[in-house]
């Protein structure tokens, strides 16, 4: 394509190798927590992997809190907005969210579609992402303005796009997840696979596993819809606590030199181990997608 004809977004994101959208029809199934885990796991997969997280949930941004960078702001530079680096000076984990732009964390962003569309375009074209191996995009629930805007703006980079669908096992969530898969087919977006979140909860007292939100629905759906099943994640209260924490709470274990305590603490959770398997499946699927025509 003639560079003159490329959109600003395309030009900016040419330095990004893979763009992965995290989708789910329903809210509260763990898109943001899966996004965070995916980013941390990819980050940890090699000492040079560079990962970006873009939070396009404009009216309910959760990513800043989960990365423990809630109080950070965005700076302007001559080459664009500087993303917030969750790993401090190492600058291998960049993140951008409308949460960084709010003066007061309790402020509501009450925007209709066109304004959301404008913000998303700016996030894609004006942020100085730099060279990234993966840009993971956390989306709001549904199949509406944000999703259509993303597909529109990223049209020039279609060959690098793929999606991961997250669901919980109960029928109400699965129904929305199927709608979401219909959406990906309608816009011709390759789906790397399905993750079942919150499948089972281990009682801290007796170790009994309860299926709080039923179980197995995700795997069943993946089979019926002919999607790769990436794995299931049980409810992990340690992870909930880790992602909920105010920000980097100083703890005695860490020496002062440590630049990224979140990663160390994440790797200690039971979820981190399970997620390694999921990431392996995602990378396999990604290799298939990019190897395709």
């Amino acid at each position: 394509m003639d560079p003159q004809e490329q959109s600003q977004v395309t030009r900016r994101l040419l330095s990004v190798k893979n763009i992965i959208l995290v989708l789910s029809g329903k809210g509260g199934v763990g898109k943001s927590s899966v996004t965070t885990q995916l980013a941390l796991s990819l980050y940890d997969s090699s000492p040079t992997t560079r990962v970006g997280i873009l939070d396009v949930d404009l009216t309910g941004p959760s990513i800043p809190r989960m990365l423990g960078v809630n109080d950070h702001g965005v700076h302007q530079s001559t080459s664009g907005w500087v993303p917030v680096y969750a790993d401090g000076a190492t600058t291998r984990l960049a993140s951008m969210s409308v949460g960084f732009l709010l003066k007061n964390k309790g402020d509501s962003v009450v925007w209709r579609g066109p304004k959301k569309n404008g913000m998303i375009r700016q996030f894609l074209s004006d942020v100085r992402w730099g060279d990234l191996d993966y840009l993971i995009i956390d989306t709001p629930p549904g199949t509406s303005d944000e999703h259509l805007s993303l597909m529109e703006h990223l049209a020039g980079l279609h060959s690098r796009l793929s999606a991961v669908v997250v669901t919980t096992p109960q029928a109400v969530a699965l129904m929305d997840a199927i709608k979401c898969v219909s959406f990906t087919r309608a816009v011709n977006l390759p789906v790397l696979g399905l993750i079942e979140n919150m499948s089972g909860y281990v009682c801290p007292c007796c170790g009994e596993i309860s299926n709080v939100f039923s179980v197995g629905g995700g795997e069943e759906m993946a089979r019926k819809e002919n999607l790769r099943f990436l794995g299931s994640l049980p409810v992990d209260t340690e992870l909930v606590g880790l992602l909920d924490a105010e920000s980097d709470v100083p703890d005695v274990l860490s020496d002062n030199q440590e630049s990224f305590p979140l990663l160390r603490r994440y790797n200690a959770t039971p979820s981190a181990k399970i997620f390694k398997g999921i990431v392996k499946n995602i990378l396999d699927a990604l290799a298939n997608v990019t190897a395709g025509p």
Partner: peptide, 18 residues
């Protein structure tokens, strides 16, 4: 809060840390 059907102990799945 969640009451384990096996041991009847209540635990917090989504802990109210704040």
């Amino acid at each position: 809060g969640f009451v384990c059907p096996s041991c009847k102990t209540e635990s917090q799945i989504f802990k109210p840390f704040t």
